[in-house]
């Protein structure tokens, strides 16, 4: 990948594409390992009647119904191109997507509870955080400008100067860390990710 970044030649690009294709093929087969792990986990829970084992039944129900409609492919066999507007699509659009959106919507409540805990101004740091948060929040809504024309300007300054500086500082550190880790892996100094010792 590093080589390809500096070498724009078509052969270099073709090689990268070949590697990427192999990556996709391996990932495709790895899905079977994931499915086995998931089914084994939930089958064990049902067998042992572990706490909340009833939910595991829904895992099998959901998986089998989706797989069945996926294979049925709207009347055409699964080896043909995927048909649009089938029951498989319906399950995705009207069950999985709203369920995911529901979980995502919980985020708003969690933000409120996390903010309440953090913004209790017990230390200097949390007081600074609280003040910055108030200014930024007010600066992002029309009422902020109604209170004072300087609030949106202050909010922009906080986001554009101290916030941006901190963000870039973190990114610079991350880049150095990523290069150092890559070198450790390339040189074989770090082999933990292979399941090997030091």
């Amino acid at each position: 990948m590093t080589f390809q970044y500096f070498v724009p030649h078509p052969y270099s690009k073709a090689f990268l594409e070949l590697m990427t294709r192999w990556d996709r093929i391996i990932a495709g087969f790895a899905v079977f390992i994931g499915v086995y792990s998931l089914f084994h986990l939930h089958w064990t829970r049902i067998r042992r009647k572990a706490a909340g084992w009833g939910y595991s039944i829904f895992v099998f129900l959901g998986a089998f119904i989706t797989i069945a409609f996926g294979l049925y492919n709207g009347g055409e066999a699964f080896w043909h191109d995927k048909k649009e507007g089938t029951m498989f699509d319906w399950l995705f659009l009207y069950i999985q997507v709203p369920a995911g959106a529901t979980i995502f919507s919980i985020l708003a409540f969690f933000m409120a509870s996390a903010a309440y805990r953090t913004f209790r101004a017990r230390t200097v740091e949390s007081t600074v955080l609280l003040l910055a948060a108030i200014i930024v929040m007010l600066g992002r809504v029309p009422v902020g400008a109604l209170i004072s024309q300087y609030i949106p300007l202050a909010a922009d300054w906080i986001m554009g100067v101290p916030n941006m500086a901190a963000k870039r500082g973190i990114l610079l550190g991350v880049s150095l860390g990523a290069i150092a880790t890559s070198i450790k892996i390339i040189l074989g100094v770090e082999r933990q990710y292979l399941g090997g010792g030091d």
């Binding site: 899905v31 390992i33 994931g34 792990s37 998931l38 084994h40 986990l41 999985q96 369920a99 995911g100 959106a101 979980i103 995502f104």
Partner: peptide
């Protein structure tokens, strides 16, 4: 174990 492949599941 693998518990789900999608973000919110």
């Amino acid at each position: 174990v693998m518990v789900a492949s999608e973000q919110f599941p």
